[in-house]
Design a protein around this nucleic acid. Structure first.
Length: 964
RNA sequence: GUCCGAGUGGCGGAAUGGCAGACGCGCUAGCUUGAGGUGCUAGUGCCCGGUUAAGGGCGUGGGGGUUCAAGUCCCCCCUCGGACACCA
């Protein structure tokens, strides 16, 4: 501790602590770091250093405050995907992204931005509830405790949040607005003509004024109130409907499609999921399919995430075609209407409603044995096949591979293009959930149909000519149409694209079909049978759901004696969901006046899914104390508004894991667009730029029985193997987790090295986006770096500042400016690892030249450039350099372009592609001079051995290449 | 199976088509120390040569190609990771 500094400014370093005799008393150690860090965290909090002022409302900075002018500056809004505070606490992998955004925003703050960097907690949902059930305590209590613990852990890392803006999704004042948004969605409909959501009242008006006709053509006022309500409810963006949903008895709740894995199990808990028809709340996200897809183009997101969203939305252009049969037409969807002449059979999904109606009573003559499934009648064959198909679990379908199965239903359909009679099958490779649940099978141009046709001996007609040597499989490529001609229409010779256009035109003209677009995206199942979620602001009367008015918000989650979900035998499909809130008898029934006089209503007992709170939190950070509105439009415009034509607006930088590619990130976009359409926000997308941080992986060591052993106790032996207590163990790379006995916590790292070291290490491990293993023993490298910086500025024996007002030597000055230049661009590009490498280089240089004192000309910029990574240490050094105020708003060093360029350039000289010599010439030397210097070089001369160069290439500033 | 992404020293990783391996860990030697540790200095891709050397060759998963010049661009293949998985 320096005697020259004021007592209350730099953190006091305790001189009385026992130290080994030969360790300098003022060395930067974990103990020093702990004191410095605590001191500056308190200082920042006391001074509100990271409070970001708003343009309007309670968070306007008062006149005279040091931050009053910030709101005039350009703004930067950066945020992380907020954590789910689990009981396990943080491990070193969790804060990676938080540290990254912190370094970035600290940098931007020093380059003149008004920076908003908030943090909150996602706290409703299954894990919290399950944890609460396990520990037998109320989720409110466990969740709040976890949040307190998380806050402490995050504070210890020195993250520069504006804590006035922090909230948890379980706060009543927060979920009140989640409920308000639900009401907004409930009270609107999607107008496909205007391509946007509109208030439901406007729809009602259109019906009432006759601008829109009712389904049965009667006038609006001729309908009963109940009939009107039914029509209106059918248009709402949030609606309750009886529909096949994913019922998971093991969790006791239904799940969204996005929460069910490909093998038909719950993503959480891995329980079986069954399709069941139940009345549930849905969100009409499908109305936004086109915009959610098209607007991806303007987002600065990783291509992989965009691709996943595109695939999930799954837009395909194609056509409906009607195939007449004796008992009505079968409508199919196809993306290849151009191949209609190649349709040699048809397939209906087993659940298709027309199957029963169409199935013949007897087998037609000469029905092949293989088509009947051995049944006496088509009906029996179909019944048997259906039983067999539904009896198969998704997993069984997987393991059985894709062997095509199916049965003939005894009837034929007519191909509208050429009147050919083609047989109709039922097969489970056609899914009821997509298109129309029926297909025209074109084996010549479809792999699955080819397989089925081979198996059942059906004809194969190629309608696109494949390349010469192509044979034995379906051809999916382009080529001229062949065999595609009848007296009605001909496609022969046309390319696939032209043939599609032609046939769709013909279908529409003749009424045999029409062009259409299909999506894989389904409406979002929005209710859960859980206690720990937002209650719906909805009650029921005898006709159905009624939205509560805004003034009745919030609908608080009631206390119940037993909040555990009713869960069942995970394999018992025939169970009923039973929401815990249904047990809150005195809460369910409520007397309200909703415009029809006081009346008893029943409350909705489902709760919202855990995604609800995270669908809009980026907006609430902007105006967290606003009790009148979700967010004041002026604040939203300031922080998230579009920058101009074509810019969607939104958060400037959003960092989080890839696992939310089609869940949170799609839902949040959807809600944001609804709010945009209804005029509540100016931005049309929530997150302008997205970065996926990689995962920090960890080694798990298992003994011979396969059980994990404590990773920290494993030693590497001389042969490169690993042992634990003498016994050999094997190593595998994967996740960090309690059960794997390989957890390393930030708390431990702060304890042993300090938060600054931990931050520097995490940022120097590699590029932010890449996953990589944690290596505790390498952390010491970052520790040594900070120690060396400290040593260059503070005398370890006296504690005196050893910075002198002496200009740096020319070479060091040039290095300094090259480093400034590089660090600036690295930080702008979020390349923290290379930025730190350059700072280490600069500091190493300072070590070499500092002698009896370090030059202030280098020391000050070094401290400033280090500050985004090691903010506590940097603040401390800054103070010891004689500065009164925090460096949080100090100007980030600016490179002098003349100094970034060297005085001279060393050109490597290649002879026939190999570097044979190097010459030093003035930086501004022209190519001819460089060429002459290169050819005059002794070593180059040796290589030339008197030969005349055929060609000499001079790349200015780079190198010389001589060809002989 | 399809679509993405990635393969560089013992390890994490650097390299706008222009000197491969920045920076860090580890390792080796020396100094410091009673010793250990810390700290400091030097070295550290592989092979040949040599040893106060000078030098040379080979090297970015494999094979081909484009170029004066390829880790980087193109084609084929292998391995690993991720996503989707009968979506008509």
């Amino acid at each position: 501790m320096s005697d020259t500094t004021h007592g209350d400014t730099p953190a006091m370093v305790d001189r009385d602590r026992p130290v080994a005799a030969d360790i300098p008393p003022h060395r930067y150690t974990a103990a020093t770091a702990a004191q410095i860090e605590q001191h500056w965290q308190d200082w920042w909090e006391k001074h509100g250093t990271f409070h970001a002022p708003n343009p309007v409302g309670p968070l306007v900075e008062p006149e005279g405050s040091p931050r009053a002018g910030l709101v005039e500056r350009p703004k930067l809004y950066a945020m992380d995907m907020f954590p789910y505070p689990s009981g396990a606490g943080l491990h070193v992998g969790h804060p990676l992204g938080y540290i990254a955004t912190d370094c970035y925003t600290r940098f931007k703050r020093m380059t003149g931005y008004n920076v908003l960097h908030p943090m909150g907690f996602d706290a409703f949902g299954l894990p919290a509830e399950q944890y609460a059930v396990q520990t037998g305590t109320h989720p409110e209590k466990t969740t709040s405790e976890n949040i307190v613990r998380y806050r402490a852990q995050l504070r210890r890392l020195g993250l520069a949040y504006d804590n006035r803006r922090s909230f948890a999704t379980i706060d009543v004042e927060y979920y009140r607005w989640t409920q308000w948004i639900f009401l907004q969605i409930f009270n609107s409909w999607y107008d496909p003509k205007r391509h946007r959501a509109r208030p439901i009242a406007e729809l009602e008006m259109e019906f009432a004024q006759g601008k829109r006709s009712t389904p049965d053509g009667r006038g609006w006022c001729e309908l009963t109130r109940a009939e009107q309500r039914k029509i209106i409810d059918g248009h709402r963006l949030a609606y309750s409907s009886e529909a096949p949903v994913n019922w998971c008895p093991g969790l006791g709740t239904v799940l969204a499609n996005e929460e069910v894995t490909a093998d038909g199990r719950s993503e959480r808990g891995n329980f079986p999921v069954f399709r069941r028809s139940l009345r549930q709340w849905m969100m009409r996200i499908t109305a936004y399919a086109d915009r959610l897809l098209d607007d991806l183009d303007v987002l600065d997101w990783p291509e992989s995430i965009k691709l996943m969203q595109r695939n999930w939305i799954g837009r395909s252009h194609g056509a409906y075609i009607d195939f007449p049969t004796s008992a009505g037409a079968i409508r199919v969807f196809t993306t290849r209407p151009d191949t209609v002449f190649g349709a040699t059979y048809m397939v209906l999904a087993p659940e298709h409603p027309l199957v029963d109606q169409l199935t013949a009573t007897t087998w037609p003559k000469n029905t092949p044995e293989a088509w009947t499934g051995g049944a006496v009648t088509p009906a029996e064959a179909v019944a048997r096949y259906r039983a067999q198909a539904s009896g198969k679990s998704e997993v069984e379908r997987q393991t059985e591979g894709r062997d095509k199965t199916g049965v003939f239903i005894g009837v034929s359909a007519t191909n509208p293009a050429d009147d050919a009679k083609i047989p109709v099958f039922v097969a489970d490779y056609v899914l009821m959930g997509y298109g129309t649940g029926a297909i025209m099978a074109v084996p010549g141009q479809d792999e699955r149909d080819w397989e089925f046709a081979e198996r059942f001996g059906l004809p194969i007609i190629r309608t696109v000519r494949p390349p010469e040597d192509f044979d034995g499989e379906a051809y999916l490529g382009d080529g001229p149409a062949v065999n595609s001609s009848s007296d009605k229409v001909t496609l022969d010779g046309l390319s696939v694209a032209d043939a599609k256009r032609t046939i769709i035109e013909w279908l529409e003209r003749t009424g045999c079909g029409e062009g259409t677009i299909q999506y894989k995206l389904r409406d979002w199942l929005f209710s859960r049978q859980r206690y720990w979620g937002e209650p719906f602001p909805v009650v029921y009367d005898e006709h159905g759901p009624v939205a509560l008015p805004d003034r009745m918000l919030p609908v608080e989650l009631p206390e119940v004696g037993d909040y555990s979900p009713r869960s069942y035998d995970p394999d018992d499909e025939h169970t009923e969901p039973m929401p815990p809130l249904a047990r809150a008898a005195d809460w369910i029934e409520v007397k309200l006046d909703l415009g029809e006089g006081p009346k008893v209503y029943r409350r909705e007992t489902n709760t919202m899914p855990n995604w609800a709170g995270s669908c809009w939190y980026e907006l609430r950070y902007l105006d967290p104390r606003n009790s009148e509105r979700l967010v004041d439009p002026a604040n939203e415009r300031y922080w998230m508004g579009p920058r101009g034509e074509g810019d969607p607006g939104g958060v400037d930088l959003y960092v989080g894991g890839q696992e939310h590619a089609v869940l949170h990130l799609l839902y949040a976009r959807f809600w944001h667009k609804v709010l945009h359409d209804l005029g509540h926000v100016s931005s049309s997308e929530p997150f302008r730029k997205l970065i996926n941080q990689g995962y920090i992986q960890a080694y798990t060591y298992r003994d011979q029985r396969g059980f994990p052993v404590p990773a920290a106790e494993v030693v590497e032996d001389a042969s490169g193997g690993y042992t634990w207590r003498g016994q050999p163990v094997r190593r595998e790379l994967g996740k960090m987790g309690k059960s794997l006995k390989n957890v390393v916590t930030p708390d431990e790292m702060c304890e042993v090295y300090g938060a600054d070291t931990f931050r520097v290490y995490e940022m120097s491990m590699g590029p932010l986006e890449v996953s990589r293993p944690w290596e505790t023993r390498a952390v010491v490298g970052s520790y040594r770096f900070l120690q060396r910086v400290w040593r260059n500025l503070v005398d370890e024996w006296t504690g005196q500042c050893r910075v002198v007002d002496r200009p740096a030597d020319e070479a060091t000055r040039r290095l300094l400016h090259r480093v400034i230049d590089a660090v600036r661009s690295d930080l702008d590009g979020l390349r923290f690892n290379t930025a730190i490498a350059k700072l280490i280089e600069l500091n190493n240089r300072l070590t070499q030249v500092s002698g009896d004192g370090s030059s202030r000309e280098v020391a000050e910029p070094l401290v400033l450039m280090l500050s985004p990574f090691a903010p506590h240490l940097a603040e401390e050094l800054w103070r010891r350099l004689g500065h009164e105020d925090s460096l949080a708003y100090a100007e980030f060093p600016v490179a002098d372009p003349d100094l970034v360029k060297g005085e001279t350039v060393v050109y490597p000289v290649q002879v026939n592609g190999k570097v044979r010599g190097r010459v030093e010439v003035a930086a501004e030397a022209d190519p001819d001079t460089v060429r002459a210097a290169a050819l005059a070089d002794e070593k180059v001369g040796e290589q030339l051995a008197g030969r005349e160069p055929r060609k000499v290439i001079v790349v200015p500033g780079r190198m010389v290449s001589v060809v002989v």
